[in-house]
Amino acid sequence: MIGRAALFVTCLADTLYPSVGIATVTVLERLGVSVSFPREQTCCGQMHFNSGYVDEARQLGQRFVDVFAGEPVVVTPSASCAAHVRHQYAELLGDDARGVPESVVELSQFVSGLGAVAIGARFRGTVTYHPTCHSLRVLRVGDSPLRLLREVEGLGLVELPDADECCGFGGTFAVKNAAVSSAMLADKLDAIESTGADVVCACDSSCLMHIGGGLRRRGSRVRAVHLAEILAGAS
């Protein structure tokens, strides 16, 4: 049993989706994990790296390492940030990564790794799960999130057609190639709405910002909700 973990909430959840961070804390504490929040944390540098700004990405990566060095476990509710730290830092920082990448774990993998499947969550409604690209193809979380969702009391899980298709977010791609991104989003939203679910769920606030923003723009009744928020639900 892991007694304590540091939370890397991500700049996006911190700034725009605090409920995702709060839910993550709730889930971890319910599992008996003592959570710390190193206040100096800001951003892992993923967006800079993926956009070609290597110097900035290296600087932010170094900063991340300085903030989290010495933490045995760092949990984050973002598959793409976890993927970035775990898969890019070694090349970006070399020995300066100081073992930090290996300590960073995405939330659903962390919870599954504890052997905790039924964590006493309750959720009223139908949910469809969108496996984000980086969770699926870089981090390879597999069916960890789905197994967790299946154990949530009251939750009806429905399959998303063409689930492994990219939603079209892609960081700066969403604005640099806004038309293509919007076309990909439209197809994803159609698939989500075709399931009749009340909620679309994922492990990345960034993709959910894109999907949720699209659903809202459409006036859809479907809500975009982070996995942590569902797992934290106790009512």
């Binding site: 605090p18 604005v175 894109h210 923003g213 699209g214």
Partner: peptide, 30 residues
């Protein structure tokens, strides 16, 4: 929410809304 974005950010607004920064960020909550 924001529906419209200035200049080159306009692309986001083609198909998406964006929530504003809420009254309390995560770190403020913490």
């Amino acid at each position: 929410h924001l529906r419209w974005f200035p200049g080159p950010l306009g692309g986001w607004g083609e198909s998406r809304d964006l929530p504003g920064v809420p009254a309390q960020t995560f770190r403020e909550w913490w």
